[in-house]
Simulated assay, not measured.
Amino acid sequence: MEHDEGPVHTLTEAECWDFLTANSLGRIATHVHDVVDIVPVNFYADGSSILFRTAPGSKLLELTINDNVAFEIDGYDDQMGWGVVVKGTAHALDKQSDIAAAEASPLHPWIPTLKQVYVRITPTHITGMRFERGPEPEPDPY
């Protein structure tokens, strides 16, 4: 941990990757002109980038216009909650060697629709936090 602020802990980049590689559902945020979109995607994190599949449509068009994205995952259990935010660039894979490597990954669509375009998010900044769950403390009477 880089910082401990009571029940809130800032995650190191390595800890953020631990959460990313252990999960498979996140949200990608795109921004084109004055429109921000956030959509869920299932993904695969390989420890240095994030891969997801999509079909031609607004998400892919938005990434073509502005490749700067944010990607977020979060979760919780009885003892803690956590969240990781990745900022970076997203590009549809077009080299056959990159597509072949993506096809060999464990990434598969969750819904029965064709998702033939692989998109890789290359991080420029990764942050995360973990927090302990518990009751709210009593306020200081002074």
Score class of each variant (00 low, 15 high):
E13G: 10
K95C: 00
Y142Q: 09
E103W: 03
E132G: 13
L11T: 04
I50T: 05
E138Q: 13
L93E: 00
T30V: 00
A101P: 00
D34N: 11
G75R: 10
P123K: 09
T21K: 12
V32Y: 02
I28R: 12
H108V: 15
M80P: 03
D4C: 07
P137F: 13
E2V: 13
T10E: 03
T10S: 03
H33K: 13
H9D: 00
D67T: 04
S97M: 04
C16W: 08
P40W: 15
P109W: 08
G26V: 13
I126P: 07
L63A: 05
S97P: 00
L60Q: 13
V39P: 14
P123C: 02
G26D: 15
H3E: 05
E5H: 10
V84E: 02
G128S: 00
T21Q: 14
K95Y: 00
A70R: 09
M129Y: 14
G134E: 06
W110I: 07
L61A: 12
W17N: 05
F52W: 12
M129L: 15
H33G: 02
R133W: 09
V86W: 06
P40L: 14
E132R: 11
D37Y: 14
N68E: 08
E72Y: 06
L93W: 01
L25T: 15
P56H: 15
G26Q: 11
I111K: 13
I38Y: 12
I99C: 09
E13K: 07
Y44Q: 03
E2R: 10
H33M: 06
Y118H: 11
A100P: 04
G88E: 02
A102K: 07
L25Q: 12
R27F: 09
A102N: 06
I38H: 12
L11C: 04
G57I: 01
V8W: 09
S105W: 03
Y118A: 02
